[in-house]
């Protein structure tokens, strides 16, 4: 009896909860797989999907967002074998899963840590609370842990993301875990391809609020993207450079950098 012929997986993009091919029809051959190479129009579509999803995602209760991120951790844990097959170590899958769990717990706590009741000198209630900045463009590191470490802090607070990844198989496999985690379509959108080609379209896009350049190794590209981002005064998370180490405690900064502080005043009187 001949050996059973394997059913291969096709790695496409992840936009608006669906897995479309690149509108350009382009693919790259990566480790034997034809993976989609995203175009500027895919980036455009992804931003539309992210914007559409953002109010609903931000409007979900923090408890609900935390539950969904925890569900994503469950799904990731369950895909351990597949990631191993893609060359991701068991330790890295464990660390990635644990990180998702860590961020899931932040969903309903961050506002308590970063918000303030402000004792203004007058008869006013005054409260500062964090809010998501909106749609975030993320140039992701290729590793699973890196990808989880940039996406989770962005979305846990209610942002939606358009991710450009150079690790297509890992990224799209991770997308499959999110697609089965009750995460609403459009909250996370993944474009695989060349950041130098696609990222400038995100950096200059009027409907993108922030840009995460943490994982950009090319300093000249990062500076160009930051300059482009200045056009609409996007919030920019600058490259971590050689220090980009996703194994350490990330602290609050990856979350707080993508938040706005809203301060509400109201008089107090009978």
């Amino acid at each position: 009896m001949s050996e059973r012929l394997k059913v291969r997986k096709t790695y496409k993009l992840y936009i608006g909860g669906k897995f479309p091919r690149s509108e350009s029809g382009r693919t790259d051959l990566v480790d034997g797989d034809n993976v989609a190479r995203a175009s500027r129009k895919d980036a455009r579509d992804a931003v539309v999907a992210a914007r559409k999803a953002q109010p609903g995602w931000a409007g979900a209760t923090a408890y609900n967002r935390g539950q969904i991120l925890y569900r994503a951790a469950e799904m990731l844990e369950a895909r351990r074998a597949e990631f191993k097959h893609l060359g991701v170590s068991g330790e890295e899958v464990s660390a990635s899963t644990d990180r998702l769990v860590w961020y899931a717990g932040w969903a309903d706590k961050l506002a308590q840590v970063t918000g303030n009741a402000n004792p203004v000198a007058g008869p006013f209630f005054n409260l500062s609370a964090p809010e998501p900045t909106g749609v975030v463009g993320v140039i992701a590191p290729p590793s699973l842990l890196g990808l989880v470490s940039v996406v989770a802090p962005a979305i846990v607070t209610g942002n939606t993301v358009v991710v450009i990844s150079t690790g297509p198989q890992v990224a799209i496999t991770l997308a499959e875990t999110w697609a089965t985690s009750d995460l609403p379509g459009g909250v996370v959108n993944i474009l695989t391809g060349d950041p130098a080609e696609v990222a400038p379209w995100l950096a200059s896009h009027d409907d993108v609020n922030a840009l995460d350049l943490t994982a950009v190794a090319d300093a000249a590209l990062a500076a160009d993207l930051e300059r482009e981002a200045a056009g609409t005064l996007k919030r920019v998370l600058r490259p971590a450079g050689a220090e980009a180490d996703f194994t350490t405690d990330p602290g609050l900064r990856p979350m707080t950098a993508l938040l706005e502080t809203k301060t509400v005043w109201h008089p107090k009187g009978f």
Binding site: N116, P119, V120, A121, G122, S128, T261, W265
Partner: peptide, 29 residues
């Protein structure tokens, strides 16, 4: 989508109260 929301008041400022914008009104508080 605004950094300071005044409800039933307006243009109130206080050193304890963070001030700053969303979107093209800038960043930082």
């Amino acid at each position: 989508r605004a950094g300071v929301v005044w409800a039933n008041t307006f243009n109130k400022f206080d050193p304890t109260s963070p001030f700053g914008g969303f979107k093209e009104s800038g960043y930082g508080r």
